[in-house]
Write a protein that binds this DNA or RNA. Structure first.
Lengths: 127, 127
DNA sequence: GCCCTGTCTTGACGTCCGTCTAACCAGAGA
DNA sequence: TCTCTGGTTAGACGGACGTCAAGACAGGGC
């Protein structure tokens, strides 16, 4: 790392400000791709995408597993496995309170991903 | 499926306007998840994420395979396979002109994905 | 028409993923 | 402490994925 220009070697997925310019503006470096691809991969399953949405759109900002599981035709362990995938991807946080476990979305990384995919609002300045 | 309320049964991934509200605002329906998850999955590989970026950020809006392949330590067929994945996910378009094949990004679906991930710009009203 | 360059397709192989059942662990209540 | 409920972990299995080597196809130059 003897580069004098290393603007994003430390990618904070929880930062509130975008870590990188949009994907369509500048070529994504390999390191950035290696960090962000797992997050996209975690969202690349319909069940996890719905889980993520249920958690992120929950009333109090958090969702109980007991509310998530019955929403799918899957067994408890399978849902738990998907939640673990989301957790390991840094998309959600888990917390046990008494008997139940609650999941909470991390808006920071969602912002990162959205910023990466963002494009010009209108297809006007197309060359 | 005799629902009288089916606002997004036809999801146009190339539309310029978002097909669905943000993931954190309303729970993503199963159908929407089934349509959009493959796109996230396609971006869930570091190589494909870089390929997508190289294509989307190309000068003339398109990138030649001959420029994409040497950027990776992978064989031609492997790159071709990844490009096919991106194509089947609706993220890029391919066109053969003479000897070379050119790939072009589809901004519509990128907009859809970005809109789905978008959250409030600042964490101010958080409890 | 023939060859050469460049790209895609096919087939194969090893690995990872999604799902299940069974077993284990953590709290709450009696 | 015992038991019951809720959630996770461990192990296994079928299918999909990432990669490569070899062959097929398309277009240009001679």
């Amino acid at each position: 790392m003897s580069k004098q220009e290393a603007p994003l070697r430390l990618i904070d997925l929880n930062a509130d400000t975008p870590c990188c310019p949009p994907l369509a503006q500048r070529r994504v470096p390999a390191e950035t791709a290696a960090v962000l691809a797992p997050a996209f991969k975690a969202l690349g399953d319909p069940v996890r995408l719905q889980l993520m949405s249920m958690i992120a759109s929950a009333e109090d900002g958090e969702a109980c597993v007991c509310d998530l599981t019955p929403a799918f035709d899957l067994t408890g362990p399978t849902i738990s496995h998907h939640l673990k995938t989301l957790r390991e991807a840094g998309l959600v946080d888990a917390e046990r309170r008494g008997t139940w476990v609650y999941y909470r979305a991390r808006p920071g990384i969602l912002r990162q991903l959205a910023a990466l995919l963002s494009v010009e609002p209108a297809p006007s300045s197309q060359a």
